[in-house]
C-alpha cells in the first residue's frame, strides 16, 4: 500500500475528497491534542472518548470549510471546545467539575495516575471553564500563543494577561501542596 505523506495541504485535500487514509492520518496526528483538551475540561474518561470522536465527526463534516492549513489546529481546538460546551449544556452540568469527577478519572488504568496528576487535576477542576481551557492550551507544547488566541477568540496581549490570571488562580488552589508537587513523581 502506498504510504501517505504528512503534508497537511495534501492530507486536507484528500480528506475533502473522502480519502479514508487521509482522514485516519489526520485523526492520528490530532487525537492526542483533542483528547487532552477534552479530558482536562471534563475529567471524565468515557465522556472524553466519546466527545473526541464527536469532535472528529464534526471536523470531517465541515472539512470543506478549511482554506488555510495554518488554521487547522486552532480550528480543531475550537470545535473540541464547542463540543465540550454542548456536552455541559446538554448534561446540564455545572462547568466546574467536582472532586468526585476527578476521582472517577482515577479508575482508568489507560491513564497513568500519579500523586502530582491528582493534585493538579483537582486544582484545575476548581477553575472556571475559560481558565481551564486557557491553561490546557497554553501549556500544551504544540500550540503557539497566536493559536491559543485564535481558539479563545482574543488578541495575543489579552491571552497573555488571562493566562497570568488563570495561572495565579491555579497556583492559589495549589497552595500548601508545593512540597508534594516537588517531591511527587
Amino acid at each position: 500500500m502506498e504510504a501517505i505523506s504528512d503534508d497537511f495541504e495534501n492530507l486536507i485535500q484528500w480528506a475533502k475528497n473522502g480519502d479514508e487514509r487521509a482522514m485516519t492520518r489526520l485523526i492520528t496526528i490530532h487525537k492526542g491534542l483533542v483528547f487532552t483538551i477534552i479530558l482536562r475540561m471534563t475529567n471524565d474518561y468515557d465522556a472524553s472518548q466519546d466527545l473526541t470522536q464527536e469532535t472528529f465527526i464534526k471536523v470531517f463534516m465541515n472539512i470543506k470549510k478549511v482554506k488555510n492549513t495554518d488554521h487547522l489546529k486552532p480550528w480543531i481546538c475550537t470545535i473540541a471546545r464547542n463540543v465540550v460546551r454542548d456536552y455541559f449544556r446538554k448534561a446540564k452540568r455545572n462547568q466546574t467539575i467536582s472532586f468526585e469527577d476527578v476521582k472517577d478519572l482515577h479508575g482508568h488504568s489507560e491513564i497513568e495516575i500519579t500523586r502530582k496528576r491528582i493534585i493538579i487535576q483537582d486544582a484545575l477542576a476548581k477553575l472556571a471553564e475559560r481558565d481551564r481551557m486557557l491553561l490546557t492550551l497554553a501549556y500544551y507544547q504544540g500550540l503557539s500563543l497566536k493559536e491559543v488566541a485564535e481558539v479563545m477568540k482574543m488578541n495575543e496581549a489579552n491571552v497573555k494577561v488571562c493566562i497570568h490570571r488563570a495561572r495565579k488562580r491555579l497556583r492559589k488552589h495549589l497552595e500548601g501542596y508545593e512540597h508534594e508537587l516537588l517531591s511527587a513523581s
Binding site: 492520528t28 492526542g32 483528547f35 473526541t52 489507560e110 490546557t136 511527587a184
Partner: peptide, 17 residues
C-alpha cells in the same frame, strides 16, 4: 515547572480511528 510538566503531557485516547 512541576505544573508545566504535568499539563504539557499529551493524553492518548487509544485507537479510535
Amino acid at each position: 515547572q512541576a505544573i508545566e510538566s504535568e499539563l504539557s503531557v499529551e493524553l492518548q485516547p487509544g485507537f479510535i480511528e
